[in-house]
Write a protein that binds this DNA or RNA. Sequence first.
DNA 1: CAACTCATACGATAATCATCGTATTACGAT
DNA 2: ATCGTAATACGATGATTATCGTATGAGTTG
Lengths: 129, 129
Amino acid sequence: MADTAGTRRPGRRLEHPRAGEIRVDAVLHALADPVRLRIVRDLADGHEDMACIAFALPVSKSTSTHHFRVLREAGIIRQYYEGTSRMSRLRTEDLETRMPGLLGAVLNAALLAEREDAAAVPAPSDGER
Amino acid sequence: MADTAGTRRPGRRLEHPRAGEIRVDAVLHALADPVRLRIVRDLADGHEDMACIAFALPVSKSTSTHHFRVLREAGIIRQYYEGTSRMSRLRTEDLETRMPGLLGAVLNAALLAEREDAAAVPAPSDGER
DNA sequence: CAACTCATACGATAATCATCGTATTACGAT
DNA sequence: ATCGTAATACGATGATTATCGTATGAGTTG
């Protein structure tokens, strides 16, 4: 296979906005969807690089692809190919530069809301007393 | 005018979510629209109480009403009647409790983006030298 | 009461978007 | 080369939404 041996040759070019092109509207819109917010939370939750398949999303694969693209085009994640898989990682630094504190505030708010929901509905399979 | 003299008698009941009912998704979605973000920025920009008419929005009046309702139902603003006018104010404290730092981060990011745009296009009617 | 003003409600419309299924591409392994 | 896997592209579809114009309601002032 000649020159494809150990080098990184992306089969398809993935379009990313440059850091300076990240728009507030697009970021907020991207984060406003529950599925995409879930993806971002999972990424922030320690799994820095994950294949799309690794997310247990309640949608079909094509829909999943769509959501990853929205996140990528908004400048929230960076994606690259690793074999047939596509890895995603948060563009934490770029976001922090353009919108200081925004991502952290959103993640924290989502966490607070989740805790509150858990407290309100005490997990029937594990009811506390 | 009987009992309407100095008392507050709202002509129409305005529905507001309670602080605990404010949802992250709804807030992000509400802020993702440029017209609504403009409203929120104006409100945050010192004008704590403004009538809807006081905003110079690039949309019709009915559309304006629609956007104010979205903001209100998301829990971002509180509205009350003052005569025939309707006043709006940010629910800063409620938002800060539910989503600490979020509103501030969004406002700051919008400000940064605006400054950058202004720098990129040096205002032809007022070109600096 | 009548006129005026601010805002709403009610459709209507066009655009955006989330979702899906299926066919296809890219890559790795057999 | 053939197969399998991961993901995309391509429509298609239904839901949501941003927008508007017009008619209506509520309040103030003549």
